[in-house]
Amino acid sequence: MIKRPIYEASAFVLSFLDYGESDRIVTFFTDKYGKIKGIAKGARRSKKRFANAIELFSHSRILFSRNRKDSLFLIENSDVIDHYPKIREDLEKTMAASYIIELAAHFTAEGKKSKKTFSLLKDFFEFLDRKKFTEESLRFFELRLIKLSGYEPVLEVCVACNTPLDEIKAPRFSATDGGIVCVECSRQRPGSLPVSVGTLKMLLMGKEMEMEKIHRLNLSKQSSRESKAILESFIPFILGKELKSVRVLKEIKRLMV
């Protein structure tokens, strides 16, 4: 009998799909191998091998193997490291975490490892678990994730003519150009959105700041609205579609009013 090598990794559950009688096809984001997709045989039945570890956004230690290079990974075992109880107890936090994992699933490619993306997810879930949730914190997560996947928007200079931010009077954000544009250049870009210098500076600062300190950044109502508007136009432009969780989040918000 050929012995398959067993891999071990620390992982977040990005999504899963019930398959057959008791199996589950799970997408993980791992620290060592990036995004992987595997089948957890008997996951819905076996309390021993998977002890509640295959739950959305839970952080687990997984053991997995593979028969052939082109086949799904076989998840052999999974142990919870953290299931973030404070996120699960709070509807807003759970919805934010659901959005985060959908975003991460879209902005990462299978088999492409990224320790930084893994750390970003871990830091953000820990932050969400411990601190009060603010809508603004999502903006910093989005920006960082976009940066790590190579789509970082240009916020320091006009993407068309290179005029530095400090010299731009009324900057606008153009999703199709992937950054800010000055007044002159914005004339040829009808879809661009107005954004204040203050908002841009706040986003530039928050992008580099440690996650732990993010809650100290106090965004004004205007900055909060503007940063949401620019990222809400930029993310669907990169992905070519609106995320399903964004639609659901809006629906829940409407219901709560």
């Binding site: 919805m95 659901s98 994992i101 699933a105 969780s245 659901v248 989040l249 629906e251 829940i252």
Partner: peptide, 11 residues
């Protein structure tokens, strides 16, 4: 049940 990533909302 609610499942944002699958597009299942309250509606």
């Amino acid at each position: 049940v609610l499942s944002p990533a699958d597009g299942i909302g309250p509606g």
